[in-house]
């Protein structure tokens, strides 16, 4: 008798409601919208409240006074795909959120790169290598 719970639910016509709720409960996206909200709600966890970075056994780079921010594509790609210790956030932020936070750091903390950067430009940077929705964040251990 091999009948899984999944099959039982499918038989009862219940599966359609499942994945959506499961996603709401366990996965999710960041709710912060403006660049300021996103930086201080998320990014400062590592890059620190004044974007000065931090040093321990390893280091988080400062975003303050950072010439790597001259081209908006660079920070956008790092946010989307990750780089070394920097996690990939492509599946947790929308294009608009990424454009907003890139705009924010490029015009704060001693950075003065006011050129516009749009959600459409972020969308164009998303590649098949960007993280998929399926893998998700860490599970409990």
């Amino acid at each position: 008798m091999r009948l899984s719970l999944r099959l039982a639910l499918a038989v009862a016509g219940l599966l359609s409601a499942g994945p959506v709720l499961a996603q709401e409960l366990h996965m999710g996206h960041f709710h912060e919208q403006t660049g300021e909200e996103i930086f201080h709600g998320v990014c400062q966890g590592c890059h620190m409240p004044n974007a000065q970075g931090a040093v321990g056994a390893g280091a988080y780079p400062a975003l303050a006074n950072n010439p790597h921010l001259a081209a908006p594509e660079y920070p956008a790609l790092v946010i989307l795909n990750g780089r070394k210790a920097m996690p990939a956030f492509g599946d947790m932020f929308s294009d608009a959120q990424i454009a907003n936070v890139v705009g924010y750091v490029r015009t704060h903390f001693g950075n003065n790169y006011p050129s516009a950067f749009t959600a459409a430009q972020v969308a164009a940077l998303r590649s098949p290598e960007s993280p998929s929705e399926v893998e998700g964040p860490a599970k409990e251990h």
């Binding site: 999710g28 998320v42 966890g45």
Partner: peptide
């Protein structure tokens, strides 16, 4: 609290 993903990043901030 013991959490992961976006909520854990927000906690860290």
């Amino acid at each position: 609290a013991y959490t992961f993903g976006p909520a854990a990043f927000e906690y860290a901030a």
